[in-house]
């Protein structure tokens, strides 16, 4: 086995794990998992974490951390709903994206200009931005009107936005300097700096992309639940992060960061949540079972990729 093939096989491991989980649950649910309606659900439920993950991937690739995704979802959908009420239909995405962009830029600037670790900044955002949304929203009901909801929940928009974003991110991530720099920063930030690349700019851009993607995910989430509430997006960032890491993206970032892994990871999580319901696993224990299966899936993927690696090494 050549090294190229080995690397390729390594990338496929998350897909295998996904396949294994799918097979297990479809067998256990006697095929109900793969019913048209449930596939629709799984896709539906995976869209927000995948979109947010597409952005967070840039940050993770650099070895940095962004746990502000959940609160950006709330903030962006707040502004989206406000904009729709104030200006109309078309304003939802621009307003949300602007909110996400500003948050991301702010995080990036604080991180690069003031050298505050990204985990610390985003943690304080989690604490404060949630409170800010609560303050702004108060007791008002901010609804997304039905036509808009139908639009966002409709297959055409949902799939085309998802496909568009995936394509754009695959392009930026794999075929432009920005993506390469983000991954290179994860490998060795100093090496990037010493090749004359403006690392700060790359970092700010990465946080901004993460913010924008979280905002777009926020609009879809808001459309799904009909509007904004103060708890919208609670621990959403953890779901996205699980998707990334379960898919096999290294926590330290670098060249191992791949879009396919993110998608596989997010699908795995949704599949798990859906599959357990289909198995009639109910109540508080579901959460525990989910935790155990997640751990098992990661362990499984690791063992498999290790054995592929060893076999290739032995040849």
């Amino acid at each position: 086995m050549t090294r190229g093939v080995k690397a390729y096989m390594g990338d496929l491991v998350p897909l295998f794990t996904l396949l294994a989980l799918t097979l297990f649950f479809s067998a256990a649910t006697k095929g109900a998992l793969l019913s048209a309606m449930n596939l629709n659900n799984i896709l539906n439920q995976s869209i927000p974490p995948i979109i947010a993950g597409l952005g967070m991937m840039f940050v993770v690739a650099m070895g940095a951390t962004d746990i502000s995704t959940g609160v950006v979802v709330a903030l962006a959908s707040y502004f989206a709903c406000m904009a729709v009420t104030a200006a109309g239909f078309w304003a939802a995405f621009p307003a949300a994206i602007l909110a996400g962009l500003c948050t991301g830029l702010l995080i990036g600037v604080i991180n690069t200009r003031f050298k505050v670790p990204s985990f610390m900044i985003t943690l304080s955002f989690v604490i404060s931005v949630r409170a800010l949304v609560t303050l702004m929203l108060g007791i008002q009901t901010l609804q997304i009107a039905k036509p808009l909801r139908d639009l966002f929940n409709g297959w055409a928009v949902r799939l085309s936005v998802l496909a568009g974003l995936v394509l754009i991110v695959v392009y930026v991530f794999n075929y432009t300097p920005l993506g390469m720099y983000a991954k290179a920063i994860g490998e060795n930030e100093n090496a990037v700096k010493y090749t004359g690349i403006n690392v700060s700019k790359v970092k700010i851009a990465a946080f901004a992309i993460s913010g924008v993607m979280a905002a777009i995910a926020g609009v879809f989430t808001a459309a799904r639940v009909g509007g904004v509430s103060t708890t919208l997006g609670t621990s959403f960032e953890m779901k996205v992060m699980m998707g990334l890491f379960i898919g096999g993206i290294p926590v330290s970032g670098g060249m191992g960061t791949k879009v396919s892994k993110l998608i596989a990871g997010c699908l795995m999580i949704t599949l798990l949540e859906s599959g357990l319901v289909l198995l009639n696993v109910s109540g508080a224990i579901t959460q525990g079972v989910r935790g155990l299966v997640l751990l098992a899936a990661v362990y499984f993927a690791r063992v498999v990729s290790l054995s592929i690696h060893n076999r290739a090494e032995a040849r």
Binding site: A32, T221, L232, G233, V277
Partner: peptide, 14 residues
């Protein structure tokens, strides 16, 4: 809140 919708969807699917 998102999980509420997801749970209802999953109930219907199951």
């Amino acid at each position: 809140p998102e999980k509420i919708m997801q749970d209802i969807e999953n109930m219907i699917a199951s």
